[in-house]
Every structure is written in structure tokens, then in C-alpha cells.
Design a protein around this nucleic acid. Structure first.
Lengths: 164, 164
DNA sequence: CGGTATCCTGAAAGATACTG
DNA sequence: CAGTATCTTTCAGGATACCG
């Protein structure tokens, strides 16, 4: 029972997502592609990862629809493969953003966060908050309930609070 | 150069957080403890993980300040160890919530999400959105800029958009 | 430049057995 | 019930070498 397979099979969106991102490199590759690093060698250098490993990760990410590989031809050069985020890959941004928020709060040195996210246009810092469909912005003291949804199976649900 | 060590050493909150959550079991343990499963055997059963592995993961999570181990005495029984989320562990909730949002959107079957999060009190569904310090709620078309923060080092920053 | 093929090695998963 | 000790075996990381 390896963790991968266990997680992928559960009726739980956290488990399913974690099965996709199981490996640290997965997240870091998504981060760097999202940052504008699109070529194999650049990724290998930027990440400091073995090329064989990078190759495997890229294949997996393409296979799971997070990245797409396309050939771009810059004027006057030969065609080169590039990796870009798909829609699905871009939607992973919220997970990376959550990791940033957490890391900024708990894992940054006294100097503060290494990177800040700002709202283009207004320039103010951005962070994630929970909002409910009625428009309330949730604070630290608001309780969030977890309840079985339409896709629930006899397995997984959970009657306990959480804090967004 | 294993991913763990590379990630932990980077001036990047995403990398630091991912170094903490590297393994799928880590996330699933945090999920289950947050769901109200606090005892060793219950966790082992709920997760379907080998007890040796669970033991190692719990030690790591306690060591990194995400869980704390305490002994509870129920009236009339002997004392039992229990694991609870620390403040830091509760703050990981935003990462799990982000994973839920992503999994609900991209990895759920046609029936819909297996679990829904609702705002206690109003009962409406909850999701994560980016908000900026000026109070604007960010939509899909708002651009977020990544810029070097106070904790930046000559290494890591990144001038490219992202989508929260 | 952008990979794949191979091989070697170390780490770690998990089965089993034991302790308080 | 809540672990730890030990052992075996698998498996993935990375170095090297090679191809289009």
C-alpha cells in the first residue's frame, strides 16, 4: 500500500490532489514553469535536479494535464520544445499560494518573506481567505463545517471543524 | 541533491512548505488529525498505513511543530497519548483547503465533490479567494505580481504572473 | 539543446516480532 | 493500545554515457 495509490483511490479531494503533487519536485516544477521558466535545460539548472528526474517529472505532469509541451519557433532559430501550464496547471496556483501564505507566516526568518505577492494595479499585498457563497469573508474565529457532498462514498466524510 | 534538502534550503516559502509536506502521508495525517482522529491506532486504521511508517511520520510532524503529543486521561481509564494540531498545524488548513478546491474542480467525478465545506452559521459553501490589503477581492482576470520581499536573497525572486 | 538508456546505490516501506 | 527493533526487498535518485 504505497501512499500514492492509497491517496489516489480515496473519495477525498485533498488525497487526490496530494497524489498528483506527491513529490516535492512536482510542486517546484509547477512553480518554476509558472514563473516563466519554460525550457528543459533552464528548469534543470534552476531546480538543481538531475535531468533524468526532471524528464520523468515533466512526463508525469504532462500526462496528468498540468503542463503541456509545445514547440515554439523563434524567428530565425530552429524549433524548441517548451512547457507551459494548462488551465488545470494554473488552477494549482491556489495551492502554491496557500503554501506561500503558510511559509511566510511560519517558515520565514525575522527579515520577512522572500517573495511578496501584490495585486497588479493597486500594488497591495495579497493573501488567501475563505469566503462563503453568501459573500461573508471568513475570519479566524469562523467555523467551517465539513459535510458529505454529492460525490461522497460510504468511506470518507468527516464531522469536524477546520480553520481556513 | 535530494528534493527535500534542496527545497528546505531555498529562499522560497513554497519550497520550504513543500519540504515539510514532502510525503503524501504527511498531508493525510494532518487531514485526519484535523478531522478529529487523535489516536495512533485510529490513525493507522483510517489511513491504511503501516504502523512503523505512521510512527515515523508522527515523530516528524511533532518535531516540526505541526502536531503535539499529549496524554489525556478519560475518567475511569488509564492515560492515553493523543495527537492534536498545534497553531502551526491549524494554519496548514489553508493548504488543505486549497487542495480541496483544486481537487473539487479537477479531480472529482461527475457526481461532484465528496466533501463540502460550509460556513457554520450561514450554511453556505466556502472557497478560497485572494484578497489584497486594500480589500479588493481578486477575480480570475486580476494579475498578481511576484516581487522580491524583505527576506529575499540573491537567489530566488521571480518577475512573472500567477493566478490566485 | 533536449532528451533517453543503463546501471549502481542508498533510503525507506512494510512484514514480523517483540515490549510496556 | 501504542509503539520500537529488526530485517528484507523494492524502488527511485542520480551519475554516466549516448542519440537526434
Amino acid at each position: 500500500m504505497d501512499a500514492q495509490r492509497v491517496a489516489a483511490g480515496q473519495a477525498c479531494s485533498v488525497a487526490r490532489t496530494v497524489a498528483l503533487l506527491s513529490d516535492p519536485w512536482m510542486v517546484l516544477v509547477v512553480r518554476d514553469v509558472g514563473r516563466g521558466i519554460h525550457r528543459f535545460d533552464d528548469l534543470a539548472r534552476s531546480l538543481g535536479v538531475a535531468r533524468t528526474v526532471l524528464s520523468r517529472r515533466l512526463s508525469t505532469l504532462v500526462g496528468s494535464g498540468i503542463l503541456e509541451r509545445s514547440d515554439y519557433r523563434e524567428p530565425g532559430s530552429r524549433t524548441r520544445p517548451e512547457y507551459h501550464l494548462t488551465r488545470r496547471g494554473r488552477d494549482l496556483g491556489v495551492v502554491l499560494a496557500a503554501m506561500m501564505d503558510f511559509g511566510d507566516r511560519h517558515l520565514a526568518g525575522p527579515e520577512g518573506p522572500p517573495v511578496v505577492r501584490t495585486h497588479a494595479g493597486c500594488g497591495a499585498a495579497v493573501r488567501l481567505v475563505g469566503v462563503c457563497a453568501d459573500g461573508h469573508r471568513l475570519g479566524a474565529d469562523d467555523r467551517v463545517l465539513l459535510e458529505p457532498g454529492p460525490g461522497a462514498t460510504p468511506g470518507s466524510p468527516a464531522p469536524d471543524p477546520e480553520e481556513p
